[in-house]
Design a protein around this nucleic acid. Structure first.
Lengths: 210, 210
DNA sequence: CGTACACGTCTACGCTGTACACCCATGAGT
DNA sequence: ACTCATGGGTGTACAGCGTAGACGTGTACG
């Protein structure tokens, strides 16, 4: 009702964006809101519940403002995927939380439903739809989380230096790929290519099963 | 050299397996090893480094004991994926750490190399191999993490109850899928089917690009 | 007027990671 | 035989954490 809870959650989001999620302590949050730490507990059960509330707010931002039946299923799927990546780019700390909390919030459900309808429209047999939804969401969230956590971009060690950890003889694959490994990677282009591959996978699942 | 570090890491793994990763505090770990908390810092730079060391030990367990050129690329890929899922089933707390720390350890590199060689052998064009490696590893780790975190199995709320959060009119996809959503889900079978889809995707990437 | 309720404060407890100074056993070099 | 570096361990201390519990205080309504 009061809107106080939302104020608090937004303050917490601001702290997380500015100083990282670890900086979100009850004391720091209370300071920011202008109250005593204990006052927060009137609006939030727990620290865990606080984090849940924070990702809840983000999930809402991930959804299209209104249903888009005028777009193709490919476009709707892409839009959702891009929205997901955008959210985790703006709030890197939140990426791994998307994995922990099952999508049981209303907004989470809506996101799942968008994928369901897209897959149905693509012609995927109904019994296969839930599995493919999980496959797709797992990959998209996984990509976003990997990017946010820096799994794809091993900071100080460039690919060449990284390979130095082991003799090339132990890494035949790396040796064979040679120069391709030294290219700078464009994660936006890569995400696009991945989504294209996934679209092809959906189309294959939709074909009369050969 | 001394092996003391390994002792400590294994003690930490034991605590994490028994009481969860949050129970791994420097004090608890020191107690278990039989020393003072500060003694640990001779062998481990940080708490963060401690966690890194722990996942390092797990990564080693994930790899096949020796190269298996006698197996097909499909079999080697499957074996690695299953090993990954097995590790995160035995150590659920570790799943999301696999995302954070880039695979720059020797063992991590070896795992990547296994995927590289498999994809090359499958006939994937070399410039595409690194991207597909990231796609596959992202999905596999993502699946494992989702399962470990319970993202696929929303505890107390069964699918039917979950859907009750929103009017069916807002969830056309859920409504259309009806009974298929109430089936109990067999994650082992689902993982298998997902891997099959991914294999098909690799084969498609290997085909002379149509 | 009384009283219920939402909201906030104060104090305190047990826990965390870790900086800093100190100690002791071993083994190598002169 | 005497010194000295080095690796491993101890003890103390500090700042920060989440949160339980008791206690105020203002506003709204019977």
């Amino acid at each position: 009702m009061s809107g106080r809870r939302e104020e608090i959650l937004d303050a917490a989001l601001a702290i997380a964006d500015e100083h990282g999620v670890d900086a979100v302590s009850m004391r720091a949050l209370a300071d920011r809101v202008g109250v005593t730490p204990m006052a927060l507990y009137r609006h939030v059960k727990d620290k865990a519940a606080l984090l849940d509330g924070m990702v809840g707010r983000l999930l809402a931002a991930l959804l299209p403002p209104e249903p888009r039946p005028d777009h193709t299923w490919e476009e709707r799927l892409d839009a959702l995927a891009h929205a997901c990546r955008k959210v985790t780019q703006q709030h890197p700390w939140a990426a791994h939380l998307l994995f922990s909390r099952p999508a049981v919030t209303p907004d989470g459900l809506r996101a799942v439903d968008i994928i369901y309808t897209a897959l149905i429209e693509a012609g995927v047999p109904e019994p296969e739809v839930p599995r493919l939804e999980r496959l797709i969401s797992t990959f998209v969230i996984g990509f976003a989380a990997s990017e946010a956590a820096g799994r794809f971009a091993p900071g100080d060690l460039d690919p060449r230096g990284r390979r130095g950890l082991l003799p090339d003889s132990e890494l035949p694959g790396h040796r064979a790929l040679g120069p391709w490994l030294d290219l700078p990677l464009d994660l936006t282009a890569e995400f696009e290519a991945d989504l294209a591959d996934i679209r092809r996978m959906v189309e294959a699942a939709a074909r009369p099963s050969r």
